[in-house]
């Protein structure tokens, strides 16, 4: 739990292997997860003895526990109205992962709206390194991305394949029906035209604050504080519960100290 420099996560093991398929050409690849979620999750414990809690599935009618063998899946079609599916029924229509990333065409990477981006994976060469290297170099030169589809577990995704930091990356995409059209938002329908003077001022402010994108400047302060607390607790230190002062209160205190100093001088 290093508190010094934030390290990027190390690669984990491959979760999928198959081929990038472009027409008749196949490039064998392995798929590594690229994103490591950093949200903290806590286990629920029994306060009295510290043991983890267990979940039971209880029937809402007779309050009795139900075993897995007695469970079916239901899709709610109306209030308390369900269409029932047996396990085999769902099994039968599951998309087969054909172990292929089907590339349909190549597009300019920058032409994809970022709102469609879902999850990213690293594609590593699987045995045939020449084919991989060839595709990588060509995509890099052109700044293009292959667009196609992949089946991961049971879901079929649109996906992009492109070069990043000397590797091929696969990014799954959202379907259009998963992305809300902002034109449907009520508040946006009758947006007033700003007055030109204010626009000029806003543009000046933005220009003054313009710079290069640098993600390393952003920190999750909640995560850092949790890590700090975990460390303390592991060392057996007593943790004092203290409500954090908001950033703006801190700023006010700084200004207040300065003013008090000035007033004392008088």
């Amino acid at each position: 739990m290093g508190r010094e420099e934030e390290k990027t996560p190390t690669p984990r093991k491959a979760i999928w292997s198959g081929n990038i398929s472009i027409g008749l050409v196949n490039v064998p690849v392995k798929l590594y997860p690229m994103i490591k979620e950093h949200a903290f999750s806590f286990k629920l414990l029994h306060k009295e003895n510290g043991h983890p809690l267990k979940y039971k599935r209880i029937c809402s009618k007779d309050e009795k526990e139900v075993s897995w063998s007695e469970i079916v899946k239901g899709y709610e079609v109306g209030k308390n109205e369900f269409v029932v599916f047996e396990k085999d029924e769902l099994e039968a229509i599951k998309p087969e992962s054909d172990k292929k990333i089907h590339i349909d065409k190549f597009i300019d990477f920058l032409s994809v709206d970022p709102v469609y981006f879902d999850k990213s994976y690293i594609l590593a060469p699987d045995k045939n390194e020449e084919a991989y290297s060839l595709l990588l170099t060509a995509l890099q030169r052109l700044g293009k991305a292959g667009v196609g589809k992949i089946t991961l577990r049971t879901k079929e995704y649109p996906a992009l394949v492109y070069e990043y930091k000397g590797a091929l990356i696969l990014t799954t995409l959202r379907y259009p029906y998963e992305v809300v059209d902002p034109r449907g938002i009520e508040e946006l329908k009758e947006l007033k035209e700003p007055n030109p003077e204010e626009v000029d001022l806003a543009i000046k402010i933005i220009e003054n604050l313009s710079g290069e994108f640098d993600i390393t400047g952003y920190k999750d302060s909640f995560k850092e504080k949790i890590e700090e607390l975990i460390e303390k607790k592991m060392k057996g230190e007593k943790v004092v519960v203290e409500k954090p002062k908001k950033e703006e209160v801190k700023e006010l205190m700084v200004a207040l100290k300065e003013t008090i100093k000035q007033l004392e001088k008088k």
């Binding site: 703006e248 209160v249 700023e251 006010l252 200004a255 207040l256 003013t259 000035q262 008088k266």
Partner: peptide
């Protein structure tokens, strides 16, 4: 201090904390 986040100048997004900060600075 209370409700520091409350926006009191909606056109400019100026919050109560900024008004208090102003009066702190100008007090001398």
């Amino acid at each position: 201090f209370t409700n520091l986040d409350k926006i009191l100048y909606p056109d400019n997004g100026i919050k109560k904390s900024q008004i208090i900060e102003y009066y702190i600075k100008i007090a001398p």
